[in-house]
Design a protein around this nucleic acid. Structure first.
Length: 385
DNA sequence: TCTGGGGTCCTAGGACCC
DNA sequence: TCTGGGGTCCTAGGACCC
């Protein structure tokens, strides 16, 4: 029988906001939200201090991406509309998102962790899973060392959860935020996991939470005791089985240390809704700009694609997608623009639009594509000698 | 005063092939 | 005269995550 795994989930605390506080330490202790536009960047006064935009000055259709714990205390959280946040915390400082800076600190903390524990799975810009199973140190020693390494590399704090699998580690990293360490074994499931709301489980989102609530299932304990047939008739066989598994804290997904991207995309929400006819020129310019940016992304990351798709969001927030698979591989802006234009012709354009996006999928590494071109498949070679 | 931008995975139907 | 049966690819939509 294999030894129990030790899986850590490391989550940076209020990541974007914390990176901004490194730059503007005078904001420490204040409610600060990230989610503005470039126009909201702080102005530098002659005396070296900064003049910051306040949430009350914001007008637009953005959302909050992160907030400091002081802002959260006022009810302002990620994904909340910025205008709504402004009502709750008008005096909070508003900063624009600076992804280049966050990517920089993301690389720093991941490199620091990999230097100690190389089995790392990327889960986005601010969190990772780490497989600690093969390390001789105690779990607490390892978690303490990792946290210190992240702090030394970035000046930032993180929270770490360690458990026998990814599902529990993820739940656990949240139990003592910020700057915490939580270590759980299967023996703690009844006391520490079951009392939690079902939405704490990664994979149970708003829709499933609402459906479960309608069945009287609020906590993970409720889910663990739920009738299998009831779950099956409401969620289907596969999802019902998964719900029962996770309610018992069971999960055997491995930590995956490398993965190829499946798609690359660019999209934008307009400042005001646009109409395909009245705003034809503006829309066309944005469309071309998205295709150019996408082509540049493909080139920079070293991929070509075979499928091009578009995404439209109407003024009523309904979303439609169309895609087309080409007979050749491409990363060319003009080719992408033509394919995307073909997709656009297949979609109703009576309503005003609020969003337009372009996506490349069926990706192949450009190097592999070149090799396949230079060395045709065996079956394409003439037969016989 | 609604609701960003970048992703992944799953489902389901139809085309097409053997 | 209803209905084969896999397997794969393509497309569209939706749930979910950071």
């Amino acid at each position: 029988m294999a030894a129990a795994r030790r899986i850590a989930h490391l989550d940076m605390d209020a990541f974007y906001a914390s990176v901004e506080l490194l730059r503007y330490p005078e904001l420490r202790g204040q409610p600060v939200v990230i989610g503005g536009r470039r126009a909201d960047a702080p102005q530098r006064n002659p005396d070296g201090t900064h003049r910051f935009a306040r949430l009350r000055d914001y007008a637009g259709r953005g959302v909050i991406t992160t907030s400091t714990y002081e802002a959260r205390a006022l009810g302002v959280f990620s994904a909340m509309g910025t205008m709504k946040a402004a009502k709750l915390a008008p005096d909070a400082v508003l900063l624009p998102t600076d992804f280049d800076a966050y990517r920089h600190y993301s690389r720093l903390f991941k490199t620091a962790v990999r230097a100690i524990c190389p089995l790392v799975e990327d889960r986005g810009i601010d969190e990772i899973y780490i497989d600690l199973s093969d390390h001789p140190e105690t779990t607490l020693e390892l978690a303490t060392t990792l946290k210190q390494a992240v702090r030394d590399a970035t000046g930032l704090s993180c929270s770490i959860g360690v458990a026998p699998n990814k599902l529990l580690a993820k739940i656990c990293s949240e139990l003592d935020k910020p700057d915490g360490i939580t270590i759980l074994g299967m023996e703690h499931i009844a006391t520490r996991i079951w009392p939690l709301a079902v939405k704490k489980i990664n994979g149970i989102g708003p829709k499933a939470t609402a459906k479960l609530a309608a069945l009287g299932i609020e906590t993970i304990a409720d889910l663990a005791q739920a009738d299998a047939n009831l779950l099956q008739s409401n969620f289907g066989r596969t999802y019902a089985a998964w719900l029962q598994q996770v309610s018992q804290g069971r999960d055997d997904r491995p930590v995956v240390t490398s993965a190829e991207p499946k798609s690359i995309s660019r999209e934008t929400t307009f400042e005001r809704d646009l109409h395909a006819v009245q705003d034809r020129d503006a829309l066309s310019a944005i469309f071309t700009r998205l295709c150019t940016a996408l082509a540049a992304d493909l080139a920079r990351k070293g991929y070509v694609c075979r499928t091009i798709g578009i995404k439209l969001r109407y003024d009523d927030f309904r979303t439609v997608t169309r895609d087309v698979t080409l007979t050749e591989l491409t990363a060319d802006a003009a080719r992408i623009r033509r394919a995307a234009g073909e997709c656009l012709r297949r979609v109703p354009l009576e309503r005003r639009l609020r969003l337009l996006g372009v996506r490349a999928s069926a990706l192949i590494a450009a190097a592999d594509a070149a090799q396949q071109r230079d060395q045709p498949q065996q079956s394409e070679l003439p037969l016989g000698e």
